[in-house]
Design a protein around this nucleic acid. Sequence first.
DNA 1: CGCGCTTTTGACCAAAATCAAGCACTGTGG
DNA 2: CCACAGTGCTTGATTTTGGTCAAAAGCGCG
Lengths: 209, 209
Amino acid sequence: MRHDSIMIPARRIIVRKSDVPMQMFTLYDGWAFRFVLLPDGRRQILSFLLPGDLIGIQAIYGDPLRFSVQALTDVTLCAFNAKEIAEAMQKSPAQMKHLVARSIREAADADNRVIGLGRRTATERVAGLILKLTNALKRRKSVPGENFAFPLRQEHIADALGLTAVHVSRTISILRDEGAISLERNILTIRDRQRLTELADHNEALALT
Amino acid sequence: MRHDSIMIPARRIIVRKSDVPMQMFTLYDGWAFRFVLLPDGRRQILSFLLPGDLIGIQAIYGDPLRFSVQALTDVTLCAFNAKEIAEAMQKSPAQMKHLVARSIREAADADNRVIGLGRRTATERVAGLILKLTNALKRRKSVPGENFAFPLRQEHIADALGLTAVHVSRTISILRDEGAISLERNILTIRDRQRLTELADHNEALALT
DNA sequence: CGCGCTTTTGACCAAAATCAAGCACTGTGG
DNA sequence: CCACAGTGCTTGATTTTGGTCAAAAGCGCG
């Protein structure tokens, strides 16, 4: 299938809530995040997007988006024409099946995020997020060691986890003091994955895909 | 398509996490809920299921379930054979499309639950849940007035919203004192929908589909 | 150097959890 | 018909967690 490759600079909005985009994107390189702005101006981050993630499956149905997506770093996208995809789907049950599987998996991820917010302390949430992100990175582009480019501001973490930026700062200090991670100048290092997992799991060994 | 109608008594587990069910169900009558048990014994309720909801789309793919489902009241289900459905899907793109649409919608619902847990007070959460449930009931089986059979224990509410049962009790007292609702012997009455909406929205007019 | 952005730290406050006791309603057995 | 056990709800006292407000320090950059 034909597709265009698009580059987008950090901080740019990629798609906006209520848009009815004509294209669907695969995030090819870089980080982005899905979010909504609440009427009082606060921002809820729904999830972070890493290379391999899809943006806007809704496009296939011509449904308006329920969230915006913003680039966190410079980002490379592959754009697919929504109409072409819809047509391909008609013809290929295999493709279609793939898509259903993908959206079922997405729903499962969202369930996991609900679990993650349910009844966990700040420390568990932050530790869990870091584990989830680094695991996903390892899985996708077999990163060798335990060092990661980490483009999130503490405010992003706060907006994703339902905490304040101030409290995220304190929480990260705890993780540092525990010797679990170090984080400076956007480089994250997992110093003690074991310990970090304990801090995250304290309650649950589950649900942090 | 052939299907069987099944009756299940209140409190019975309908499907269990990690099952690979051979059937998919439509909840025809009654209430149920999806949940996971965390290793420490706590329960996170993912969502409540009302008449019209599907249980276990995953079945079509032979994927194991990521959650259990339990009946809250006596419940009537329509069971569809998963294999038959999968075959029907192969043949009918329209059916398939319908399914994709459904699972996309489910993911959107899960996003909304994330928003709902993000950074809201106990009062907002409880008021929001009550609004969401009563709206859904009204939409599905055009209930006439503002009285609803309400089979949830306060512990269910707590497990869904990430609060303690004790605090849910206090919160409901507030809603009562505000004149927004009354709730006794499993009958919920919305006394002042306007006020209830204010208490829920205080921050956001959004996301309580 | 000085400005903006982010993070850190401190003092204080508010929301919700925890611990504990008591109450109300139901169903059961004597 | 009553005692009483079980379940769920309420209420109070106290503690913990995280939020708020404010100031200062670190860093990147023109």
